[in-house]
Write a protein that binds this DNA or RNA. Sequence first.
DNA 1: TATATTTCTTAATCTAGATTAAGTTTTTCA
DNA 2: TGAAAAACTTAATCTAGATTAAGAAATATA
Lengths: 172, 172
Amino acid sequence: MQDFLNIIESEKISAKHYILKEGHYCNYNHFIVKGCFRSFFINKKGIEKTINFGIEDWWLTDFDSFMNRTQSQLNIQATEDAIVLKISKAKLDLILQNSLEINKYFRIILERVRIADQRRIQYMFNLSGEELYNTFYEYNPEFVQRIPQYMLASYLGFTPEFLSKIRAKKHS
Amino acid sequence: MQDFLNIIESEKISAKHYILKEGHYCNYNHFIVKGCFRSFFINKKGIEKTINFGIEDWWLTDFDSFMNRTQSQLNIQATEDAIVLKISKAKLDLILQNSLEINKYFRIILERVRIADQRRIQYMFNLSGEELYNTFYEYNPEFVQRIPQYMLASYLGFTPEFLSKIRAKKHS
DNA sequence: TATATTTCTTAATCTAGATTAAGTTTTTCA
DNA sequence: TGAAAAACTTAATCTAGATTAAGAAATATA
């Protein structure tokens, strides 16, 4: 555990700044101490597609780039002023060679991530846009206030205009 | 490793039979030695939605039910005659308490699963139905032959009728 | 090898959500 | 505190893919 703490670096990130940009290698896994981030890519039409959010106590990285040492297709941007703990791939690998506890820790986190991803895929298949928004709102009422609506629309898989329509309907 | 092999049970499953049914508790993680499975749920309209396939050398379970000891919303069905290795939650937990190697093994698998889930979500956002089919076909040409088309349509998130339309277009 | 069942196709009609465009409100920061 | 930028709304029009329905192939089973 002491080893683990020794290899962690703390960093402040201002709102709208990036911890990862498309085309770069993702060299760090980040633990969010404070603030909020979104990861997004830019599709063929030039539109930003938000694929994840991260808030306090979550880990955030582009796993594909981080694990496979490939150029990232994602951008990770702070949506508000933030503090993260960074851990580099090389140093994490070293610790993962021998530490039972750290392996357990990340295994358990990844199990939870898997469950969340699976639920999200299930929701995307099963729910209409309106239902997706209502479900998200129900489980994360405070979070809906915390981010611009157009990012949420993008995360839920539809346009900001459509989200506006849903809200108008709801409040009428 | 010997401990690990000791707690594994082998089982034969005939085509169309289930290793998990909706409403039951998922007590096992399954390693597929031979054959093919699909996991699906039944939506509000009574339509089967395939959310995953599993083939040789993959692990397959309902992680949500398996980890959280909740009733499963999923069915897991063999699409052809199959052989699996089963490992119960209780026994797996025991081994995971102390084994560095087994923790590493599952951590690494889950990292790969995370990457696959992430890519799938990205594809679902970015590609039209036609592009989803073409991409899937490109990377898994043999697998497309292996399962009924209506299951693939369901996995890709559209109707069998629409898949038929895509294929007609492609071959004309 | 005939019949039942499962899978696949075609085509007409319908709808959730996209697109475009213009205007309004809110936030930022000089 | 006022101008510029960012975020949000409304409404008209358009389209990918759903729905429905009926028939044709393919596959399984007796």
